[in-house]
């Protein structure tokens, strides 16, 4: 029984294609880094707009966050890939092409900026109101208060939750194979059409993702606990 299972799973096949598969994983990492950067930048802008004084901006930012939090990543990805070139093309009156990479980074960045903006907002709101009032009465400007008093504390408090969001984002990078970005799932399905042996390939991919993500989330948990013990986060 175990012998048969070993023959079916055949890790040797996975090993044979290790270079291509690792390249696929690197593509995932690359898409992850780019979309995480975009998501963080957008999330800060949205969170600050949601907490600001301008009513219109506040409403727009809230709608933005709700839309991207409640729309599936896959349809966002397809939408950016197919519709954005058409709209841009009509706007600029030329033919516009978006590479699968750009579409993936945009879609994932937009989707996770919605989630992250909530984390950022919660972090900013966790700074006690009294500190802001004290700073105002000392004559600090609003931007100075944000920069010197709110952000240093808020950043540390939002870090554990933000890292968890990044883990989710990394998991979502597996969808980008659907618009033909040569990530690990794309490579697996390509090798499978050649070898016709789905069992070792798909099991290998699942195990690989599982190992990477468990390592990441365990170290995040470990770090967050240490930060909490030090009163840092």
């Amino acid at each position: 029984m175990l012998h048969r299972l070993g023959a079916l799973l055949d890790p040797a096949l996975f090993w044979e294609y290790r270079v291509i598969l690792l390249k696929g994983l690197a593509v995932d990492g690359y898409v992850f880094l780019a979309s995480a950067t975009l998501a963080v930048l957008l999330a800060f802008a949205i969170a600050i707009a949601r907490l600001g004084r301008n009513t219109l901006l506040r409403a727009l930012a809230t709608a933005y966050a709700e839309f991207f939090r409640n729309t599936p990543e896959y349809i966002l990805l397809v939408w950016v890939y197919y519709v954005v070139p058409v709209l841009l093309g009509q706007l600029l009156a030329t033919k516009v092409d978006i590479s699968p990479y750009v579409a993936s980074v945009l879609a994932l960045g937009l989707a996770y900026s919605g989630f992250l903006s909530e984390t950022v907002r919660a972090g900013i709101l966790s700074v006690p109101r009294g500190q802001i009032e004290a700073a105002l009465s000392l004559g600090l400007r609003r931007f100075q208060i944000l920069q010197r008093i709110i952000l240093p504390q808020a950043l540390r408090r939002m870090l554990p939750e933000a890292l968890n969001q990044f883990v989710s984002l990394f998991k979502a990078t597996s969808f980008v194979s659907l618009v033909a970005v040569p990530d690990i799932m794309y490579q697996v399905s390509m090798i499978d059409t050649q070898e016709m042996r789905p069992i070792p390939l798909y099991t290998g991919a699942a195990v690989l993702y599982c190992v990477v993500i468990i390592c990441a989330s365990q170290s995040i948990q470990h770090l967050s606990e240490r930060w909490r013990r030090r009163g840092w986060a």
Binding site: S174, F175, V188, I199, Y202, A206, I213
Partner: peptide
Amino acid sequence: RATPIFVQLLWVNYV
């Protein structure tokens, strides 16, 4: 919890 849904889907479907 640690495997992306897309990977699980293909895994269940093919394996």
